[in-house]
Write a protein that binds this DNA or RNA. Sequence first.
DNA 1: GAACGTCGGGACGCAACCGTACCGTCGTTG
DNA 2: CAACGACGGTACGGTTGCGTCCCGACGTTC
Lengths: 210, 210
Amino acid sequence: MTTEKRRAPAGAAVLRGEITSAIRTAVMQELAEVGYGRLSIEAVARRAGVSKTAIYRRWRSKLDLVLDMVSAVAGRNIPLLDTGSLLGDLEILLHVMARALRHRLAAQIIPDLLAEAARNPQIAEKLQTALDDYQQAVGRILIGRAVERGELSPDTDRRAAVDLIVGPVYWRMAISRAPLEAAEVPRMAAAIVAALRVACLGPARDEVEV
Amino acid sequence: MTTEKRRAPAGAAVLRGEITSAIRTAVMQELAEVGYGRLSIEAVARRAGVSKTAIYRRWRSKLDLVLDMVSAVAGRNIPLLDTGSLLGDLEILLHVMARALRHRLAAQIIPDLLAEAARNPQIAEKLQTALDDYQQAVGRILIGRAVERGELSPDTDRRAAVDLIVGPVYWRMAISRAPLEAAEVPRMAAAIVAALRVACLGPARDEVEV
DNA sequence: GAACGTCGGGACGCAACCGTACCGTCGTTG
DNA sequence: CAACGACGGTACGGTTGCGTCCCGACGTTC
């Protein structure tokens, strides 16, 4: 290819960032409103006040568009503060999750995409890696620190631990769709700590005492 | 209306049950495959080997059809066996939930409809009442019995308890989509019992704000 | 200030689906 | 055994969305 004579695009021949971000927010809103299944490029374009071509110039298809959004959002990893105790760490994590799921958009988009992931391999892959990263981070860092401190047994099952930690918040906010008051977090955190302590003891062979 | 001369429909003029049920299973499969958002009557008809008219004669619209399916499935309440101990009751419940979510159809349809419920008031209502029934049943019966036995404090927060019980299984099977081995159930049940014990101790009493 | 070249917008062809109207079929009823 | 009447199937207009093509507009570069 003799591209030597070519000069870089300039002037009006350059993607306008404002439009790109207008599309992005429109996609989020549309995704929340109708879900991935019914997401239409035309609706996105309408909502963004933009032509369809503007979208197709940036992303090859609807799937590409959504995949890009997902990786953009899921890419940023959560900071897991070290408060010095498992209980403290958990409270922070629960607060962060609750805060995230309190946003209307997130609370609608996340369950929707997770459901869609069950049937769309591309979305599943993108989402699953993000989810795995998240779970691993929680498992390794949060549980790992607790093990180092001696708060949990070294042979704690990381996956089971993640289920016990993340499950209740997600169920409460995304499925049951009941608000989680900040005041409830400490209690939930304490309950989870108790659960984690028991979970690493292995199968319930012993009788439980009051 | 002078319906006196009317005689009851008979012969070929009666809905054929085989076709009705063919439609029903087709809807379930289609729902699992493409989700509610993309569910199309034509596809259902094709899959069932039936005409669209056959469907429209039975249900007024796509929404009606799905609502009917939901109430049919969600209507049947789960039997909660009394094993004599909270731990035993929990193990049973977890097994039942795990068994249900192991079915491919259920594991795809349930999250999908729950996500859809977030934006469709009609589905939300049907599903929410079913969910509430379920949660109440778990809360009242399972927790209630444990309280009677003295295993849990009388002022246990039912809602928080349900979150701790149902959340982990749901997360594991429907979101994380990792298999839950039967051997893991006892451990998870034991962990949940521990969590419930702590949860009813009340909030961390130092900070109680709304 | 003219040339450049991509930009956004509107229009197009194509495909899928919705919900309805009509038509011949068929089993029961009297 | 004939009449009944809802049955299932086909065909149809209308709508929506996809992805593409062509056009005039526009800001930078030389």
